[in-house]
Amino acid sequence: MWLTSKIKQVLMVIKPGVVTLNYPFEKRPVPENFRGAPYWDHEKCIGCGGCANHCPARTILIRDICQEIRVMVYDGSRCTYCGRCADVCPEKAITMTDRYELATDDRQDLNESMELFMLTCQRCGRCYDMENVNMIDRMDLQGYRYDNIEARAFIRKTTDRFDPEMLKKTADYKRPSKIGE
């Protein structure tokens, strides 16, 4: 009994042989639908902010520094590569690439930022109807956003008119420190 199972085990090991990949010298090709590092196409982006509202990791931040200019920052150092941003983008400006070797000693290497010129809507100042019928997705869509990009902080509050006061208030946003420090 003991010997037969040992013989079987030897056969089990010999048959497949060595399966170790010769990585990193030879890379295994990634499959077609792979979710690698996302890529932003600034020419297609309309600055609707759908990606920022859906990012579960709060990787994409938006700061409206005035009525016309919207700054968008993607902080890849905390991206989970779920690909939700690419899903919801109405203009297909975001694609998940096949890049996956992203280790770096400078976290700035992973960031991407855009400054977008935003036209003012004649009716409401700023509105988006992204042919998005899903109620959960629609709820967070409208208005002006004031995330603090230096502190990488997502400020949940939005306004329907551009609010300089809010901008000023969020400029010196501080992360919570220990009580009493």
């Binding site: 009994m1 003991w2 199972s5 089990m12």
Partner: peptide
């Protein structure tokens, strides 16, 4: 199946 057969009889 190969793994199953070769380990279920192993007395160790």
């Amino acid at each position: 199946k190969i793994i199953h057969k070769s380990i279920t009889g192993d007395t160790a």
